[in-house]
């Protein structure tokens, strides 16, 4: 049987996690190609709608990743992202989208290795969890 290859949408902040992803690349760290990176200026600008739309358009998981607490370049965007993620977890889990399908992590600019490891782990987890909406044809 073919292994299931999940699609993961990752919203990464320009200053930390995107830089880490770049570093992972230049330092030849390997991670699976299931993830689609979307660069945003700050995790604080990830509107919950982006996450909802990603899931409804077929993503199997979503990652939001940015600077560690205290390091956000817009001072507190990551704290706002944390509350929004908390809210999304509560609402999404009501309708069968488990918390592990929406992750929020802090990955600093110099953490290329951690970035690659995070993606590897997440892909593994979601492979195991299976597709989110195999039976979903009509939903937009």
């Amino acid at each position: 049987m073919e292994t299931f290859e999940p699609t993961i949408i990752a919203f990464v902040c320009n200053w930390c996690t995107y830089t880490a992803a770049d570093l992972a690349g230049t330092s030849r760290q390997k991670y699976p190609k299931n993830v689609r990176l979307i660069k945003v200026m700050c995790t604080g600008m990830v509107d919950p709608k982006y996450v909802l739309k990603a899931f409804l358009q077929g993503a199997d998981a979503v990652l939001i990743s940015g600077c560690h607490p205290g390091d956000c370049h817009y001072i507190n965007g990551n704290y706002k992202a944390r509350r929004r993620t908390k809210l999304l977890h509560e609402i999404l889990s009501r309708f069968g989208i488990d918390k592990k399908r929406l992750r929020l992590t802090w990955i600093g600019a110099s953490d290329g290795i951690e970035f690659a490891a995070t993606i590897r782990k997440m892909v593994e987890e979601i492979r195991e969890a299976g597709p989110l909406q195999s039976d979903l044809k009509m939903v937009i």
Binding site: Y79, R82, R83, R84, L87, H89, R103, L104, K121, M122
Partner: peptide, 17 residues
């Protein structure tokens, strides 16, 4: 309203794998 405020030390369990 919950989304109008935020603090440094809260909801730590929301983050990480």
């Amino acid at each position: 309203p919950p989304l109008s405020v935020f603090y440094e030390n809260e909801f730590k369990d929301v983050t990480g794998l």
